[in-house]
């Protein structure tokens, strides 16, 4: 079957069909991500003072991934422009760089960022036990400065059996810097560079703990929204990489020889999708990493 209006414009819309198609799809994508972002806003506004975490993510790594995604947006638009100028060789290289950028972005997320979170542990302390753990929380110091209180002690869990074994009565944690030295003014605001947990060990009785878990989606509203939104975004990056790879393989070369404008249009719609994925990340990055 011959698909109509792949290159020529349809008289009533003034556009080739795929362009209308991709924009309708992107409109539905706006609603999909809009729903998740509005859930984020709702959860964040509803969080008690000090309950919404700050500075848990690695800012330099997030910044790097942002730059990679922006660079790939430039290369994909250059790939399209190269096709328009009938420079197939340039197209091939730009597309390859775009694909590599997408793969790097995903690699950083899946191999580095997410696993680092899965290995991290946090325990929310019950209200009446907060005073007992004051040396790790530094809430008097924060109150004096008018800052929100801390209710969580986090770091690397040493006795993993404590998560499931009821006979283990306490968690042993190698403390994060913020809990190791909570009254240090440097800890009042998040760090730019990631600082791993210290050697300082703390024992926290389970009886004093409201809720404790690894940094998984179920850990908190923050991580639930973080993993959901970055996960869905990551799936979009994967989808984009698959489509770009298809257009970059010999299939694309064949289409180029038959009708270069058709390939240019395909790259344009795939590029529109890719720019949208970049656009979503432009909001994800400050909302989760910086604020």
């Amino acid at each position: 079957m011959e698909i109509p209006y792949t290159v020529t414009a349809r008289p009533d819309t003034g556009l080739w069909n795929a362009k209308v198609g991709i924009w309708l799809f992107l409109a539905s994508e706006v609603m999909l991500f809009g729903g998740l972002f509005s859930a984020y806003v709702f959860l964040r506004l509803d969080a008690a003072p000090g309950a919404w975490p700050h500075g848990l993510l690695n800012v330099p790594v997030g910044t790097m991934n942002t730059a990679i995604l922006i660079a790939s947006s430039v290369t994909v638009v250059m790939a399209w422009a190269s096709l328009k100028m009938r420079r197939f060789r340039a197209y091939w290289w730009y597309m390859l760089v775009t694909i590599l950028c997408g793969v790097t972005f995903l690699g950083v997320k899946l191999i580095y960022e997410w696993p680092q979170k899965f290995e991290h542990f946090g325990a929310f302390i019950k209200k009446d036990a907060l005073e007992k753990y004051e040396p790790y929380l530094g809430n008097h110091h924060l109150a004096e400065k008018g800052l929100a209180p801390r209710t969580e002690i986090s770091g690397h869990l040493h006795n993993h059996e404590a998560l499931h074994d009821e006979n283990v009565k306490e968690y042993e944690i190698a403390l994060d810097p913020v809990n190791a030295d909570p009254t240090n003014p440097l800890m009042d605001r998040p760090h730019f560079l990631y600082v791993p947990p210290t050697e300082k060990l703390a024992k926290i009785e389970k009886a004093d703990v409201e809720y404790a878990n690894m940094f998984l989606p179920k850990h908190s509203a923050y991580f639930a929204s973080y993993f959901t939104i970055t996960g869905l975004h990551g799936l979009h990056v994967l989808g984009g990489v698959i489509v770009f790879t298809y257009l970059w393989l010999p299939v694309g070369t064949k289409l180029y020889k038959r009708n270069p404008e058709h390939l240019a249009n395909r790259v344009e719609v795939a590029g529109l999708f890719w720019h949208f994925v970049d656009l979503v990340w432009i909001f994800v990055f400050p909302l989760f990493y910086l604020l």
């Binding site: 910044t63 942002t66 730059a67 947006s73 990055f285 400050p286």
Partner: peptide
């Protein structure tokens, strides 16, 4: 592209 990179640095 350059402006976007610059404003990424600015927002950080």
């Amino acid at each position: 592209g350059g402006t976007l990179l610059l404003f990424t640095a600015i927002t950080v």
